[in-house]
Amino acid sequence: MVNLNGKLFSSEAEILTHKNRGLKYGDALFETLRCIKGDLFFWEDHYFRLMASMRIVRMEIPMEFTMEFLEGEIKNTIVENQLENEAVRVRVTVFRNDGGLYSPLTNTVSYLIEVEKMESPFYLISENAYEVELFKDYYVNRDMLSNLKSTNKILNVVASVYAQENGCDSCLLINTDKHVVEAIGGNLFVVHGDTIKTPPLADGCLDGIIRKKIIEIVEATEAYQFAEESISPFELQKADELFITNSIVGIQPISKYRKKVFKNEIGKNLVGKLNAKARMAQTS
């Protein structure tokens, strides 16, 4: 079952019309997160990112859209799907209500909550091969809209098709300055020795929640140095490790880029710290 504005519908129900602005114009934002037995991973971070994004795109934030209200709606949807004792993937989509062409008739919004069962309650490091390639057909813009978790993801879709056509698991995206920005499904981190580096938001990468948590972990760990700097494609084959982060997988190691095969030592170390951080957030 899915939750549309507080009402529960069968997941097969046809509840959105051809007038939906998320469908017609990509006029929507979304958050994906983990929920483990009723505990939402990093919910406060997700909530405040959603509220900030709604302000940036000039959506009207309803008075009832408190952190407690949306958390309750998510948990109610999980219970109605009989997943309260499971690891759950949650997606909350907020879209401007119907009406208008590019210029909307209203800035009021609706929300849709979807949930599905996951296998693992915590973040795990995959030992499977994961090969990436650079996607150079189209570019990420260096602006604030690129930082948002919006449904304007046609670049990511086309890059995913390119990856499938070329036998890769994912692609790395570049911006208009030809700097590597992120992967199709998350933020990118590059490891050189004890330095862990990720592109700055000014380069156009997603303002990812797990990106933020990894930065906090690295900055608090004496064994590592952190750098938030632009990444040249030429750096990739010189790196010791590459990994991708997002709220569902946590840390996805990259095993191969072109002819370079990468280690996966720091990624394994960080995933334990990430799980510990998630548990601390749940109990605080």
Rank of each mutant, 00 (worst) to 15 (best):
V140T: 08
K75S: 11
V271E: 00
E73N: 10
V191I: 14
L8H: 12
M63R: 12
L4F: 10
K212V: 01
R211Y: 03
Q282V: 02
S150Y: 13
R211C: 01
M144K: 04
I244C: 04
R49E: 01
S160H: 11
Q282D: 01
F189V: 08
I74F: 11
P253R: 01
S247E: 04
T106Y: 08
Y139R: 15
E71A: 15
F262I: 09
S103F: 13
L242I: 05
E64R: 07
L270P: 08
S110Q: 04
I215Y: 08
I174R: 05
A52K: 14
N141I: 05
D169P: 02
N275R: 10
L188N: 00
H179E: 15
M67H: 05
M1N: 10
R34C: 04
S232R: 13
R279D: 05
A227M: 10
N246L: 02
Y224G: 03
F135H: 08
K7A: 10
K153N: 12
A239H: 10
P253F: 03
L29Y: 09
T17S: 15
S146Q: 05
A129Y: 04
D45S: 13
R142I: 06
P253M: 09
M63G: 04
V88C: 13
F243E: 00
E114K: 10
A276I: 10
E241W: 08
R96F: 09
K260M: 11
G100V: 15
L188E: 01
G204F: 04
I210E: 00
I15Q: 01
E68H: 14
V261A: 11
H46L: 06
K117W: 08
R89W: 12
L23K: 01
D177S: 14
K268Y: 00
F135W: 09
F234H: 13
L155D: 03
E68Q: 14
L242R: 07
A159V: 03
G99C: 11
L188S: 01
C35A: 14
